[in-house]
């Protein structure tokens, strides 16, 4: 039986990438929910320009969320 040191560098990379990716995904989707809700509220209050602005922010957040997820899938498929 052979025993060897574990790759500490790889381990640390997994830790920080997981933290950044996990936080990015949850924050971006939370922003989608936040801006989407604000947009609906503004629309109900008759403030159409604010509603449009919040809707644009919600869309932007969702696009960023989709980009992060898409990159993640790409990484997974490239794993081989």
């Amino acid at each position: 039986m052979r025993l060897a040191a574990v790759e500490v560098g790889l381990l640390l990379e997994v830790v920080w990438v997981s933290l950044v990716a996990g936080v990015a995904v949850t924050v971006l989707f939370s922003l989608v929910v936040l801006f989407g809700s604000r947009s609906a509220e503004a629309g109900r209050g008759g403030r159409s320009s604010a509603a449009m602005a919040y809707a644009a922010l919600a869309l932007l957040s969702f696009a960023a969320f989709a980009l992060v997820v898409g990159y993640g899938v790409n990484v997974m498929l490239a794993k081989g």
Binding site: L11, E13, V14, S18, A21, V25, G72, V73, V75, M76
Partner: peptide, 16 residues
Amino acid sequence: QGAGAAVILSASHVGF
């Protein structure tokens, strides 16, 4: 689920 996916994907990226 987001945290789980992030951990698995980042680990896959370095072949872990």
